[in-house]
Design a protein around this nucleic acid. Sequence first.
DNA 1: TAAATTATGCAACTTTGTTGCAAATCTATA
DNA 2: TATAGATTTGCAACAAAGTTGCATAATTTA
Lengths: 141, 141
Amino acid sequence: MQIASIDNLLKRNQLSVTDSRKKILELFKEHNGAMAHSDIEKKTDEKFDRVTIYRTLQTFVEKGIIHTIPTPDNSVLYALCKDSCSSTGHHHDNHVHFVCDNCNITYCLDSVVTPQVDLPQGFEPKVIDVVVTGICKNCQV
Amino acid sequence: MQIASIDNLLKRNQLSVTDSRKKILELFKEHNGAMAHSDIEKKTDEKFDRVTIYRTLQTFVEKGIIHTIPTPDNSVLYALCKDSCSSTGHHHDNHVHFVCDNCNITYCLDSVVTPQVDLPQGFEPKVIDVVVTGICKNCQV
DNA sequence: TAAATTATGCAACTTTGTTGCAAATCTATA
DNA sequence: TATAGATTTGCAACAAAGTTGCATAATTTA
């Protein structure tokens, strides 16, 4: 993604264009997969305050630029949303996530649609999160 | 569940029968849904050390007595395993979890079988976690 | 370019989770 | 049922993760 395009993404979402936001968005664009808060801290060489990174991630989630991923080990992961994500809260409801046991990369499988789930009488579903754990295409023998 | 039955559950798993373990198991039996570490701390009136509760939960997970649930907000929840759970690591792989937006109770829907997911070429699934968020049967209007 | 708005960094704090170790409790057995 | 040996607990100390208030710095608007 071009620099201009990152600036536009921020402006489109009524966000000031700042160093930390640009850098963190760049990281998401470069990195093929989801990242934890600590990953971002390391990859930015502690150039930004921990608090700034927390607030930036929060802001991005609120705006629907990134989404959180529930993981089997309950760590918090973030990944870029595709254009289809709306900015109204839950953004991780329409695609499946895949966590590789081997390389530990978390993929957003945008092409895989969340399956239907038959719930017992009286349960009204709103959001369905699916996380698949296994071996990814790059780690097959 | 009777007291004797709780004692047996512990003995069956080669665990010493202690106050904290009995009390925590009782809580799980009484409570209709999943609990977080902090819930347990509160419900035991801080009678047991935080560390003891952490270690008890860990032990129970290892023995397959309880299992962890990945939640959309990435907090750690624990729930009792049904008899079908083996004690070999992943215990939350065969049923769907439901989190109620209203009362916040997390249900293990043992009757609902995890749906099949069609993955892209090269992705080998092992465990499929499904968490559904919505309104539960007790909170319908 | 100056005023107004917004974001950042710092300090201090809370919550959550971990580790080592001595004291207490539990289990098995004599 | 008393006791030796094993297991578990509680404490202290720490580490990691996340939050809040506020002054300063950067960005936007006009």
